[in-house]
Design a protein around this nucleic acid. Sequence first.
DNA 1: ATAAAAAAGCATGCAAGCATGTTTTTTTGT
DNA 2: ACAAAAAAACATGCTTGCATGCTTTTTTAT
Lengths: 218, 218
Amino acid sequence: MATQAKQGNAKTEPGRQSLKSAATRARLIDATIRCLVQHGYANTVTPMVAAEAGLSRGAMLHHFASGDALIRATIVELHERRLKAFRRASQAHVGDVRAMVRDYWQQLQKPGFIAFQELAMAARTDAALAEILLPLQAELTQKFQALAGQLYPDWVQEPERLRLAMALSQILMEGIQIASLTGAMDKSLIEPLLDFLEMSVIALRPGQGTGMTMKTEQ
Amino acid sequence: MATQAKQGNAKTEPGRQSLKSAATRARLIDATIRCLVQHGYANTVTPMVAAEAGLSRGAMLHHFASGDALIRATIVELHERRLKAFRRASQAHVGDVRAMVRDYWQQLQKPGFIAFQELAMAARTDAALAEILLPLQAELTQKFQALAGQLYPDWVQEPERLRLAMALSQILMEGIQIASLTGAMDKSLIEPLLDFLEMSVIALRPGQGTGMTMKTEQ
DNA sequence: ATAAAAAAGCATGCAAGCATGTTTTTTTGT
DNA sequence: ACAAAAAAACATGCTTGCATGCTTTTTTAT
């Protein structure tokens, strides 16, 4: 639905000037993300998105048959961004735990994460949203896992600890961000927590004993 | 405004026959919490709460002048429950890290946490809610901190590590719960993460080295 | 190549549904 | 009988989806 083919001709594949349509759709999706960040999912209503995109509401409904369709497209877009960023980050600094932690932390600062979190919370009580989101969440977790094993071949010997390290990183960093956003935590604790996370992940690497060991290695 | 005084008499402090009013208010607040859990903040509307409480909407508005007032009262109620549970837990098992972790984890399973999380997320983009919630969040964090120093006197020598241990416990456990609720995490990882948290907190106790040390002590 | 035809993008207006708060009426309890 | 509690009725505002008309671009045909 997001990338519906524009009467594709066999001749010139570039969709001509009606690629303007794609641009407009992108503008609407971006506007949706901005609204999710600034006003939250519950207050993101169609007139607001249209205004944010600089379009009339009618025009918006021309591109997305309903508000639901827009949200669906936005979810797909956010998911693709997540996958792309994740792939980029993991390939950029292989084996460098500190860099990967910081990189993922940077990702969580971007509007995309807040928007996604809004949708994820909403999906908890919205069956239609959950139907779209849950499979994507599962897909992400799986690719996360797969790529991790690929980047740390020696870690695969201890899959439990690898899974633990991945989950710890994801959950703790996202938890920090959410707590910061909701005022449940003092910001001054962010850095110490990230440092601690780095140490923990390093300690979980193979050949570091069953528990944890101090070591400013790497 | 939340706990609007019921024409308090100077005479007999027991509210006589109209203590039934208090019961009704409590029923409304409980119904609100249930709605928050089952339908989320955005979909928690006044007719729904009234139905859940077994009252007419008119009756409900008799006890709480507006939907906002109800939400405010619910927030205060949740906050008091949090404080009470926290105090009980910390006094029950002094010095027992494992027990305290598990106890707080049990707290997070109760509807109160989900309801509070819904409100906290909503407060991010709702100034009125934030005005009520943020001070309470700060108060809780502060009392958390104070009581911790009281329970672990020897830990106060290293306040940084105490703060870190407290934050780590809170953030990680709440993060696990949120991730579970939103489907961002496989449930099979919960136990390993909690175990890891216990070890980490123990390792952060004073006299355990700068980093971490394996030790099934406690 | 140019004009007519078709299609797509875009804007405005309208009616229905729903949640909110206020007001009025009925019931209950002392 | 009187006051509080509960229910019902009412009026307002907002969001949504649909339908209508206008403009621009692309295609088709002579």
